[in-house]
Amino acid sequence: MEYTFKAKGHQNVTSKHKTTFEVTQDAEIGLAADCIVGVSSNVSLNDLPIKMREAIQNEKTEIKIVLKTENAEDVIRGYGHPALTLDHPTDMVCRKSDYTCSRTLMINADKAAVDLDGDLIDELASGKTLKITIIV
């Protein structure tokens, strides 16, 4: 099952966070938001199809996220969990840890913001469009 949506890069994307990366519906971010790689997302966790939400709420489900800009892309793998409520109205967070909250899309991810492809981050910092695909 696959779900694709779009967000935008932002001049304050620094991608320095060591344990998470995030996509948000917020249009503006500050420099302290070093985990955010995409802003102005056109969907929230609440918008994910019900069958995908059910799959994500299973700890055996492997989740793959593809982040793609015009000239760069990266793939991140992690897992679902029954404790994921998937109901935050604006934020989607992928975590290297097993911490869960309403903002969490996946846990035990193999990459955080700091690990993402440098060309991808450069394009996001210049404001390029970000295509996000969730595959479960």
Results as ranks from 00 to 15, higher is better:
1 M>F: 12
1 M>T: 13
2 E>P: 06
12 N>D: 11
16 K>N: 10
16 K>Q: 14
19 T>K: 08
22 E>W: 02
22 E>A: 07
27 A>Y: 11
27 A>F: 12
30 G>F: 01
31 L>K: 15
31 L>S: 15
37 V>A: 07
40 S>F: 07
45 L>C: 02
47 D>Q: 10
50 I>V: 15
51 K>Q: 14
56 I>R: 00
59 E>T: 02
61 T>P: 02
63 I>W: 04
63 I>T: 00
65 I>L: 15
65 I>P: 09
66 V>T: 15
67 L>F: 14
69 T>D: 00
73 E>F: 01
73 E>N: 03
74 D>F: 06
75 V>P: 04
77 R>N: 15
77 R>I: 14
79 Y>I: 03
80 G>L: 00
80 G>N: 05
81 H>P: 10
82 P>A: 12
86 L>E: 07
88 H>T: 03
88 H>E: 00
90 T>L: 15
92 M>T: 06
92 M>I: 01
95 R>M: 05
95 R>E: 07
99 Y>K: 11
103 R>G: 01
103 R>F: 01
104 T>R: 08
104 T>N: 10
108 N>P: 03
108 N>T: 03
111 K>R: 08
113 A>L: 10
115 D>F: 03
116 L>M: 11
118 G>F: 00
119 D>V: 13
119 D>C: 08
122 D>M: 09
122 D>G: 10
122 D>C: 11
126 S>W: 02
131 K>N: 12
133 T>C: 02
134 I>M: 09
135 I>P: 04
135 I>M: 13
135 I>F: 06
